[in-house]
Design a protein around this nucleic acid. Structure first.
Lengths: 354, 354
DNA sequence: CTGCACGTTTTTAACGTTAATATTTGGTGG
DNA sequence: CCACCAAATATTAACGTTAAAAACGTGCAG
């Protein structure tokens, strides 16, 4: 009585079983209101009995839509605290499956030429329905390309060039860094430095601004700042500079966990203790942050929510796509990060007891 | 002169352009030897000119194969050093794309019931061509299910029940732990403890065996061992126990970076220095290992190679599938991990200079 | 009793590809 | 000059689904 061992059950077989036409079965499943209640029940019984599942290839061909959403994989740089890509993919996929889609991975170098070609190929070949981008920047080629093709897409990371047509979900970096700065200020710190990224990074500027604002409100000096690349060693060297200053930093707010871990390395080299001697905060709540000793105070991005929202946006776009090709319903979602306080920013006991 | 703005180019359009039938175009692309050289060139020119890319949905429907390989995403547990899933997916995807496939993510709880149903659904609905599993264990339901369905699949992680029909790629955990043990022994350590996982984990036993062997060869005691769950806190507590022993450990070889980081936490709590006071080694070379201070000595798994091999195996299986349904060409690949020596296992300078 | 509208169901055709089969072409040997 | 063969190309049909149009009652107003 179980389902067939092999040879996928088709619509036609279900139709025969239920004594109706194939189209009625299709309707019963996709447009239930079009078929009479009694017939519908009979059909659904046959579907359940035979264990029918629609063949997505056929449906994709017929509908010109694959229910696949493409996401780009980035290589995990060895030097960096894994940027929650792992978690992000997981929640994104969960949300996608929930909404009836599947995630398909896109492979391309970060260089935009090959990347755009990869997108186009994917689009032409597999009929990918939508794209999820991460880390868009000013004048992003990918955004231009995807829009010119009329494909629904959404970005994790806002449009920095004030492009209202772009749908995005982002996390408020300024508010995050501000919270971290206020937190260390509340511990009594007055010489609070910031280690972040160069001016070419809009994200970096945003995070730095939060520190600037918080310092100005408290009339703290803002001379201790560094704009470096995102690597352990860059953070380490910047920390050494700020600790060698005539009036050295007692707290360092960083734009990433990677940089903060570089600071910890510097302290380790100087025989100083994170927390007790110098307060440190990072950004991202990478797995590493919870695992180092002492634990790293950091900002957790609500990626579950980011994932859900992104899928919802492309889902909407795909529905709306039927009426308007573009700028139908631009959506922007700005979420708040959460400050996770660990020992790296607290004076703590001299010799902690277990 | 560019390709059409929209409305995907079809085989028929190329055929018209080249003045041949659609089938000839199909042949020119898939079975070049069947068409005359002159015609082939004319066709390929038309293909290039129109920017034709085959529609994979149509091809999937016709061929009953989607060129999609399913991989399961796991939730990244907060307590764990990100288990290289990120990197693994990246290299796996790169290898897949290289071989003409795409990776599609599978979502399911780890509980086997729902997971198998998810696999089956994917198989029925999308015509997924193959599966990649990770961390198979003894009497794995998934292996049984996939085999019963006759789907090609390969596993990252060997078959622990001596199942020769299962194709797998794995990394030699025993050799890895042995290398770590020999490394600390070479530093002069004589009281070398091991913190690993319980007997239910075949992987854990394998890694422990490497430590046991290395100790026995050197006639070192093996009384300092702990079998715990894979969490920071478990590692931390086990470390405290081994340091409280009457003849305490001076080196701790761990089955994972997570456990090793727990040991570091314990040392931090006791005011001891990793490397200088107690040598520590981990396993996996998670991003965290390079970022903590001091850096964590650990074993790097050659995941690039793992990814390539896995894809090659399923690729072979899919080719061979035409002749033999199963046990056609079972493949087993055992790779060696690489010991990455960092400061956590070295006596090092008392106060390192930058 | 005819005609018409409505709710329900079936038929037809198409999405783009390719295996299987059929047809054409050019060349050989009888 | 015809029969025959091989190579090259064309035609047919099918993969499973669904939009669109057609067909089928059934009830109701004229």
């Amino acid at each position: 009585m179980g389902p067939q061992p092999h040879g996928h059950v088709t619509l036609a077989q279900v139709a025969t079983r239920a004594g109706v036409s194939a189209q009625s079965v299709s309707n019963a499943l996709n447009n239930p209101e079009r078929v009479a209640a009694a017939t519908r029940e009979r059909i659904l019984a046959a579907v359940a009995e035979l264990g029918y599942e629609p063949n997505l290839s056929a449906r994709a061909l017929r509908n010109r839509s694959s229910s696949l959403i493409a996401v780009k994989m980035r290589p995990a740089r060895p030097d960096k605290a894994s940027l929650l890509m792992d978690d992000f993919l997981y929640v994104l996929n969960a949300a996608a499956v929930d909404a009836g889609y599947h995630l398909i991975l896109c492979h391309a170098e970060d260089g935009s030429a090959g990347e755009i070609k990869a997108y186009r190929d994917l689009l032409k070949k597999t009929s990918v329905d939508a794209f999820i981008l991460a880390e868009t920047h000013r004048n992003d080629d990918r955004v231009a390309a995807l829009r010119s093709w009329g494909v629904p897409f959404a970005s994790f990371g806002r449009s920095w060039d004030g492009d209202d047509g772009l749908a995005w979900v982002d996390v408020d970096g300024r508010a995050g860094t501000r919270a971290a700065t206020e937190h260390v200020a509340a511990q009594g710190h007055r010489r609070i430095g910031h280690i972040g990224w160069g001016a070419e990074s809009e994200l970096g500027q945003d995070r730095r601004d939060g520190w600037l604002e918080a310092c100005r409100e408290r009339e703290l000096e803002t001379d201790l700042q560094a704009a470096v690349v995102d690597s352990l060693d860059a953070g380490r060297q910047a920390a050494h500079r700020m600790l060698d200053a005539s009036r050295p930093a007692t707290a360092l707010v960083c734009a990433s966990d990677t940089l903060a871990l570089g600071v910890m390395r510097a302290l380790h080299e100087r025989g100083l203790r994170p927390g007790a001697d110098v307060a440190i905060t990072g950004y991202d709540d990478s797995p590493t942050a919870a695992l180092v000793s002492p634990g790293l105070t950091t900002l957790r991005q609500p990626i579950d929510e980011v994932g859900r929202q992104l899928i919802q946006i492309v889902d909407n776009l795909m529905a709306g796509d039927l009426r308007q090709p573009a700028y139908a319903l631009p959506q922007h979602v700005l979420l708040e990060p959460e400050l996770i306080v660990r020992a790296s920013s607290l004076p703590g006991p001299r010799t902690p007891v277990r």
